[in-house]
Amino acid sequence: MVEGKNQWKAWIYLLPCLILLLIFTVWPIFNTVRVAFLDGYNGMKAVGGTEFSFGIKNFSDVVMYKEFGTCLLNTILLCVITVPVSTLLALLIAVCLNSIKPLNRLLQTIYFLPYVTNTIAIGMVFAAMFNIVGTMGTQNPIITTAGIINNIIGIFGVEPINFINTGSSYAANMAVMIIYIVWNALPFKILILLGGLQSVNKQYYDAAKIDGTSRSRTFWRITVPLLSPMIAYVVITGFIGGFKEYSSIIGIFGEKLGPASEPGRLNTMVGYIYSSLSLGNEGRASAAAIILFGIIMAVTLVQLYVQKKRVHY
């Protein structure tokens, strides 16, 4: 502890960081809450001297707005599906990676690559992969399947599927998004789980071996419980990240946020906040942000509660 009369020194050392935090974190949070409760708040008008009355009209606007339902549904669907799927896959891959001796380092690097690659770039590659129409450099008006996925399933005699282009179905769009998000979420989860696995005492496995434990039982009764703190961490951060999903949609569908025939079909909560902002509806954006915050908070609290019961030691 710093002596009482020397405390001002400590404060001075902290000051630069505190000032930045106040300006860029604390004030914006406070201001978001304030703006959310000012009916119809608009930044330009506020500068012009307009007074806004205090109320909850922003919130009711958000909820009444028809696009909000779509955004909420998309966000929740993506979260609920991708987080468990990616966690399970990451767990399996981590366990496999951990049991491979040769090329272990190389494989770890390969699995970690998506993490350091630009989301938008990956999205564009995915968009190309799932494409159904491609001119292949010609002016031929006839549709040719250029996407690698459609080419592959074509080998097995399956008709090309319209994943993301005009006229594609919501289910197909969602499938692409899920594959993309899962793939993108794997590296971080693998990294955390692999770290966890490597810190598990090998003797537990020796003990299990001597007791004649089958492989699947060893996995479910020993590996998973011992990894449960890491799994909980990965799931919670996964949900928080999932609720903020936006850039991946842009990556695949571009700014239209959906196939050309159905713009905005895959919009998410963050997308909604973003578009409200760009339309000058700061009040509505703030309200939506607070609603999103509330949802994330609630989900996290539920998870922490479950974690207390299910996560061992």
Binding site: N201, D206, A207, I210, P225
Partner: peptide, 15 residues
Amino acid sequence: GVGLVFQNYALYPHM
């Protein structure tokens, strides 16, 4: 059919 007691016991901590 052996029973082994490990040096640090290796008791499963979650059970």
